[in-house]
């Protein structure tokens, strides 16, 4: 009869796992969650920026491990003189595993003097932050940073 002694414990374990699975599903089943893929992020990028971005010039300052997914501090700096003839036109920020990939777009110009923006963003889970900068000469530059999220900001 040892098996019957073990049974309740096993069942409890299963329940716990089911509960965890249900929690995960609650996040995943949020509307639009089906779009939360790196493919959707790439598609949005293609819609926002018409030229293929090259790696470089963009620096993303974001914690490697974000404890609170509701407010992850992000600083984006683009290497540019911000002169009337050579400046950053736009900075786009994208997350590749949020319910929707878009985070924010910023329109800049020579009046800014320095191509840097700071914001706080939500992250539903661990994922990549992708930044693309559009320059006045028509080129686009990109950088990606991975962020591990301890508590996701998915439904809170």
């Amino acid at each position: 009869m040892t098996s019957s002694l073990h049974l309740p414990r096993r069942r409890r374990g299963l329940n716990r796992r089911q509960a965890l699975a249900a929690l995960g599903a609650a996040c995943a089943l949020a509307p639009g969650a089906a779009d939360a893929t790196p493919e959707a992020a790439r598609k949005l990028l293609g819609d926002l920026v018409k030229v293929a971005p090259k790696a470089g010039k963009v620096k993303i300052d974001v914690p490697e491990i974000a404890e609170n997914g509701n407010a992850v501090p992000v600083t984006v700096t683009v290497d540019s003189p911000m002169s009337p003839t050579d400046y950053v036109r736009a900075i786009h920020i994208i997350a590749d595993r949020n319910p929707q990939p878009g985070v924010a777009s910023f329109m800049l110009g020579p009046d800014n003097g320095k191509a840097e923006v700071q914001l706080r963003m939500r992250m539903a889970e661990s994922q990549n932050v992708i930044v693309v900068a559009e320059l006045s000469d028509g080129t686009a530059w990109t950088a990606t940073r991975e962020v591990k999220v301890t508590v996701g900001g998915c439904s809170t």
């Binding site: 985070v103 924010a104 777009s105 329109m107 800014n112 923006v117 706080r120 939500r122 992250m123």
Partner: peptide
């Protein structure tokens, strides 16, 4: 300066 924001903003 102009910003277009999405729901992923805190």
């Amino acid at each position: 300066f102009e910003a277009r924001l999405e729901p992923a903003m805190s």
